[in-house]
Structures are given as structure tokens and as C-alpha cells.
């Protein structure tokens, strides 16, 4: 079993919660899109937040996880997101950065959600070219994450894990394995989790995401609003005990909106529990 460490997503809005979970985490995952502000012309990350990240990086490892790159848009990825990443890259020493294997924009228009890609040769070539560009631009390890699907996939040439493996073989990128997303896909579409994990190149999985969501209208949704289910913990334990995996970080994802619903003390207890299981 690898030595794994627990991480938390932090948006720099709840210092009192950070203080409570601080003893239980080794990594902080920051999302450029969520910590940026807009001055009427452009989005940017305020200097105060960059200073705060710098201060935290003395004690915790920093990883960067985007949501706005839209790497799968046919008409190009988001330069606005890369501008935010540029501003962090110049000033913060982060371990690696990551994005979702999906897209949020089409023809320059925001979908308001993230959709999965058809796993075709056309998509494969496009994604590999873009991953190579990004890895060249930042000279940092880059990970891609599996996303949840509400609507079934368009007909594809590759299986899910086969597609991920091909991207990694061609570019050298790694993976975030979102375990809760696998459970959602299983619940919503009967997705074969065992088969996926058997086929996925686990030596490329550097990070695991765990979370909880809600069941709405018969669909399990990745709402990131609850404490982690036993099934998610068991599946995660199974993966990190499989030979060949290189998981370093297990990040418990919780939206800021969920904090008042759960309460800071409950959340701190959850980090303590997860720390006991995974650290």
C-alpha cells in the first residue's frame, strides 16, 4: 500500500474551518476559477489570496485543480483559465495541476455544466495534442479526472479506461480517479466499476477524489455536500491496496455551500476520521 495523504479543497472563504481541519490534512487543493475575482474586464487572482497560498505552502503541499479549462471543447480550450493558472505558476510552488476530461463551453458559449466527451479517435487526437501543449507550457505534472455523466454517452470507439490509458500513453499525463463519480455512474447507468479499475493504468493515478452528493429524481449527483459514504471509503481502500498504484493524495471534496448545512465541527470530525483511515 502506498503512503497516502489527505487533502482538502480550499476557497479562502472559511479560515475558521481551515483551522479546525488543519491538523488532519497534508495537501490543499485550490481551484483558480473559484478563487479569482472579476474587475469588469478580466478575471484575476487577488494578491492577498496568492500571499495566503504562499504562507500555507510553507506547511502544506499545494495542488491546483481547475474546472474552467474546458479541454474538450471542439473550438479550443479556455485561455482565460490558463491566464489564471499563469499567475499562480509564476508565484506558487505547486506539486501538480489537473483538470476534468470534459468540456464546459461550446462555440464560446458556456453550457453551465460539464459534459463528457465522445471517446472517438477524433477526440483522442485533440485531447492528446492539448495535453501536450499544456504540459509543455507549465513543465508540471498534469492529471485528468473522470467526470460524472447524467446523460448517457454518445457512441464511442473506446471503453472509458481504455481511452484514459491511451491519453496517458501518448502524453505522459496522470489521472485523478474520482471514486464517488464512479459510484454515481454505476448508480445512474450501471457503470462497471470493477471493469474500469481492472483496465485503468493505476500507475498513473496520483490522486483520488472522494465526496458525497445527493439523490435527486432517481439520479445520484456529485453535489459534494456530505460526509463520505462507507462504500466510497471501501472502494478507495481497495484501489490504494491494489499493486502498482501510485496514489499520493486523497482529496475530500466539499462545496463551500455545504459548510453551513453540515457545520464546521461535523466537517472537522470527518477529516479526522478520514485522516485515521487514509494517512
Amino acid at each position: 500500500m502506498q503512503n497516502t495523504f489527505l487533502g482538502a479543497t480550499y476557497e479562502f472563504k472559511n479560515p475558521s474551518l481551515l483551522e479546525k481541519i488543519y491538523p488532519y490534512i497534508n495537501y490543499l487543493e485550490i481551484t483558480p476559477d473559484s478563487i479569482s475575482t472579476f474587475d469588469g474586464k478580466r478575471s484575476y487572482i487577488p494578491n492577498e489570496i496568492i500571499d495566503e497560498i504562499k504562507a500555507l505552502s510553507a506547511d502544506k503541499k499545494i495542488v491546483v485543480h481547475g474546472v474552467g479549462l474546458s479541454i474538450g471543447s471542439f473550438d479550443g480550450y479556455s485561455e482565460e483559465y490558463l491566464n489564471l493558472l499563469d499567475s499562480l505558476y509564476d508565484k506558487i510552488d505547486f506539486e501538480w495541476h489537473s483538470e476534468h476530461l470534459g468540456y464546459t463551453k461550446v462555440s464560446g458559449e458556456s453550457l453551465g455544466t460539464m459534459l463528457s466527451l465522445p471517446r472517438t479517435n477524433e477526440t483522442l487526437d485533440m485531447i492528446c495534442e492539448r495535453v501536450n501543449e499544456i504540459m509543455k507550457r507549465y513543465n508540471k505534472e498534469f492529471l485528468l479526472e473522470n467526470i460524472i455523466r447524467i446523460v448517457p454517452d454518445y457512441k464511442s470507439d473506446f471503453r472509458e479506461a481504455e481511452f484514459m490509458n491511451k491519453i496517458s500513453e501518448s502524453t505522459g499525463c496522470g489521472f485523478i480517479l474520482d471514486v464517488y463519480n464512479l459510484e454515481c455512474d454505476n448508480y445512474n447507468h450501471g457503470f462497471d466499476i470493477e471493469g474500469y479499475i481492472d483496465e485503468l493504468d493505476l500507475s498513473k493515478v496520483k490522486e483520488i477524489h472522494i465526496a458525497n452528493g445527493s439523490i435527486e429524481d432517481g439520479f445520484m449527483l456529485d453535489a459534494h455536500c456530505g460526509t463520505v459514504m462507507d462504500s466510497t471509503i471501501e472502494l478507495t481502500k481497495k484501489i490504494i491496496n491494489l499493486p502498482g498504484n501510485c496514489v499520493k493524495l486523497i482529496n475530500y471534496e466539499l462545496l463551500d455551500e455545504a459548510i453551513p448545512l453540515l457545520g464546521e465541527d461535523v466537517i472537522a470530525e470527518e477529516y479526522k476520521r478520514l485522516n485515521g483511515i487514509f494517512n
Binding site: D33, F38, S43, G68, G108, S110, G112
Partner: peptide
């Protein structure tokens, strides 16, 4: 055509 950034 709105932005994904909340302030925008």
C-alpha cells in the same frame, strides 16, 4: 452567453 465566473 454568460461567463462561468460568478462575478461576471
Amino acid at each position: 452567453n454568460f461567463s462561468g465566473y460568478i462575478e461576471e
